[in-house]
Amino acid sequence: MTVARIALKDQFFTREKVELIGGEIERVDSAFRRDEFVAVVVARFPELELKARIDWIAMRLERHLPHDFRRAADVLVRSLPAPADPALSDGDFGDFIYAPYAEYVARRGRTVEDLDFSLTALREITTRFSAEFAIRPFLDAFPDQVLATLLVWTKDEHYHVRRLCSEGTRPRLPWARNLTLSYDVGIPLLDRLFADPTRHVTRSVANHVNDIAKKDPDLALDTLARSRDTGHQRQREMRYVIRHAARTLIRANHPRALDLFG
């Protein structure tokens, strides 16, 4: 007997999920037309793929929330459930239904005047579901300011925020728009994150370095060697990071990668 697989879009974005966020928003903004929002959003789900559903929900939030961006974003942030448990080290990715909130902030709050406010909102949202896609247009528009903020966030108490610093700056982040910045822009962030105590973060760091390795093998290997030589990360975890970060080069029998790992 063949069991039908449920597409990710139909697991993550359902009527029940839309009703959930509609109710959460309505509880902090009594003017929010929950039933209308749910009906309009769900009506287009059959024709939309996963990423398109995120964009569609963000568009409907624009129509149903207050016109003023800061008022609207404040409603979204106040409606959020409790953050993912900051004591965990891995395995809790949050709920995809909150991805449109970060997309909304990226669509409406990407201005000089709203930059600090928007980044604060994204920090809150990313502790419920990663804002790795939404941070990228901010990086392109305001690279110096956003990178400075990310540098501070590498020491944040919540591991989802620290992971965002690596994941959001990845040169080849899956499903995401390409950054206009150089592929090495995240190196100062990675240098601080290699010693992170959580696998959720170090896996992202390794994936980031693997992205770099496809463009500049020597830079990737230099970065790994420098981090290993600090001795700040546990030996077993550092070995995992090197193996995962250099996996493309190891499979290609790159001499330096094999030497670094072995």
Rank of each mutant, 00 (worst) to 15 (best):
I242A: 13
R108P: 02
K51I: 11
P197D: 09
L122G: 06
S118F: 13
A84S: 12
L76C: 02
D156Y: 08
V75W: 06
V18A: 06
V75E: 09
L147I: 13
R33W: 00
L224P: 14
V152M: 10
R234G: 10
E47T: 15
T223P: 07
A141Q: 15
E49Y: 01
P66S: 12
D156R: 07
L76M: 05
A246P: 07
V161D: 07
I187M: 13
R71F: 07
A102C: 04
D74H: 05
W153D: 13
L249W: 04
N210I: 09
T154A: 10
D140V: 09
L150D: 11
D114Q: 11
A257E: 03
V28L: 09
V161F: 12
D259A: 14
R236L: 14
R60A: 09
E24G: 01
Y240W: 12
W175R: 03
E36S: 14
V146Q: 08
V28E: 09
G91F: 03
E62W: 00
A84R: 12
A121C: 15
P100C: 02
A131G: 10
L219K: 07
F32P: 02
K155F: 11
A52K: 07
R226Q: 13
Q145R: 15
I21N: 03
I212W: 08
F117W: 09
I54R: 00
T198F: 04
H64Q: 10
D116Y: 08
T154I: 01
A84P: 03
V209G: 11
T169V: 15
M59E: 15
R226K: 13
